[in-house]
Design a protein around this nucleic acid. Structure first.
Length: 280
DNA sequence: GTTTAACCCTGCACGC
DNA sequence: TGCGTGCAGGGTTAAA
């Protein structure tokens, strides 16, 4: 799940979960359920941080969602590749790989389902939060006010890395993953292996604009759900942005702009899609 | 500093 | 049909 999907999930939670009081927390007995709450030594320790508290607000930092609770604790969630929240109630059977079930005083529950268990969640006080390494490493958020194009240009020039991996580096810019980094580079006409310190001002501006437009459009379309329906929103609905993808998943198909077949290359063990004609 | 590979986990498509 | 392989929206770590 990348920034748009995380943001859609956050907005759903903001609308549906804020104001609700947590009555009960259940962490399943599987090894993977323990993996999901890996920062906590015991189920009890995790559950104690949530039970009895009301969800006050939500925010997003990169690919993390933070739910603030009354009493000052923060519930931090990262979805990994296959994690998601789903709203349900006691009458609905548990989906496979449900690891955590949070029941609300007002009725209904919130379930964390994650087949691959790369996701994680923990509860921390506001003080502790400042010491969490992963959160400290979160870099500039592309939808934040402070993400301006001169700043972006400066940051790019500071590094000497290939663009694809830099766009996916959460310590450089937080929120893009394999899909959206390909889409953004295509939109800007920049190839995966261009060096970050070689971009012209014009290219930086194009890339900057592409990042903002594509992420905003993807949020409007409620995210990307590939055919295996791995990503679903809080209410189990797929997104629509897969219909807008220009290069991702289109190996061998004609480029939508110039008809040249889309090619792939391995970057950091991930498949990267690009148009050999439109990107240079 | 940057790059590479292995690893964490399950499910699915594909080729033999 | 069954089985092995490789791949999937994430990230970390160690070593080169």
């Amino acid at each position: 799940m990348e920034l748009p999907e995380v943001e859609v999930m956050r907005r759903d939670l903001e609308r549906d979960v804020v104001g609700k009081k947590i009555k009960d927390v259940e962490v399943k007995g599987s090894k993977n359920a323990m993996r999901v709450i890996r920062r906590h030594k015991t189920r009890k320790d995790f559950a104690a941080g949530l039970a009895g508290h009301k969800v006050m607000k939500t925010e997003r930092r990169g690919k993390y969602v933070l739910l603030s609770l009354d009493g000052g604790e923060v519930w931090v969630v990262h979805f990994g590749m296959s994690g998601r929240f789903t709203r349900a109630n006691g009458r609905i059977a548990l989906a496979p790989h449900t690891h955590v079930i949070v029941t609300f005083q007002q009725g209904g529950d919130l379930r964390f389902v994650d087949p691959r268990s790369f996701g994680e969640m923990f509860v921390a006080s506001t003080d502790e939060l400042g010491k969490v390494k992963e959160l400290q490493h979160i870099a500039i958020d592309p939808l934040d006010q402070v993400f301006t194009w001169p700043t972006f240009q400066y940051l790019l020039a500071q590094r000497a890395t290939k663009m694809k991996q830099l766009m996916m580096d959460q310590k450089f810019i937080s929120g893009l993953g394999n899909i959206y980094s390909d889409e953004v580079l295509f939109a800007a006409g920049i190839r995966y292996d261009r060096m970050s310190d070689s971009l012209s001002s014009q290219e930086v501006r194009r890339l900057y604009r592409a990042i903002q437009e594509i992420l905003q459009d993807a949020i409007k379309a409620r995210g990307t759900t590939l055919e295996d329906e791995a990503y679903l929103d809080l209410f189990g609905k797929p997104g629509e942005y897969q219909n807008e993808l220009k290069v991702y998943g289109r190996e061998g198909l004609p480029c939508r702009r110039c008809r040249t077949p889309i090619r792939t290359v391995k970057v950091q063990q991930r498949t990267s899609y690009f148009c050999p004609q439109c990107q240079s």
